[in-house]
Amino acid sequence: METKRLRYEFDIKRNITVILGDSATGKTTMVELLSAYGRFGENGGIKLESDVPCVVFAATGEKWQSFFVDVEDSIVFIDEDHPFVFGEEFARYACSCSHYFVIITRRPLFNLPYSIDEVYGIKTTGRYHFPEKVYHEFYHIYDNALPNTVNNKYTFLLEDSGSGLDFYRNAFGDSICRSAGGNSGIAKVLSELDTEVVVIADGAAFGAYMDGLLSVAENKTNVILYLPESFEWLILKSGIIMGENLDRILAHPEEYIDSKEYFSWERYFTSLLMHITENDPVRRYSKVKLLPFYSTGKNREAIIAAMPEPIRRLYTKD
């Protein structure tokens, strides 16, 4: 989108994109420009190039559903202070429709499973405005060098309670792995731990919880945060499973994932892994219980090898 003074350029990859960050970076100006374009088109001095229609949400909060009646397969921009976006009803709608949403909000959207990779601030260089990722897959907050192997002071804090937890218990030791019982418990449990901690959660659905987790982690020392897409994505990335076009899918998931069918990429990668392994009793993947194929020997090592180096260093071979 372009005017004489301003230019905005975005790639929208997933069904939920969140824009936050400092004041005065041009978030509201972007929405105002889109809104003016919607009303006046290029006659308003604004150029827009997009693969799909871009619309700005405009309706009173209580009647938000009526806005979407005439909108199809669009990128819908929603400026801050529309309280309906935090509700369960909107979450249900967003999960079942074919729109992509760009939501401007600093307040976390706890009802929506959005990715840490699709949370952006707007960076400005002259007239150019472009998205800048706010969060990363890996953080290492430390004051001293980490030990080379896991010691009994270490805790692995996991969002997962099924196969992922099984895997880490097998690989790093039963007693040091602890489930937070879901995304919402992680920041609080981390704040209460006085050990060194490795936090592992599915980045694909952790966007709303990231700010709380980082706020707590920044007050600590020797904390590792690792947020891969999901445990299933990690398995697929490790190379122990072969599948048609798998490398291409992992490199460009947005080309393969239908947001109407899979609201979160985590669900897609789980489904893909289950589909590839469904006819093989040795490799058949389940989210509930992990087969020895994944949790032992060379395959376990291959999955560990797909993790960042500071976590790999904490692993000791049998």
């Binding site: 301003l6 004041s23 509201t28 801050e80 400005t124």
Partner: peptide, 15 residues
């Protein structure tokens, strides 16, 4: 800096 001459109405929401 970016928009040139503006009125108070054009200040950022945060400000």
């Amino acid at each position: 800096e970016v928009l040139g001459p503006i009125s108070p109405l054009n200040l950022s929401g945060g400000l």
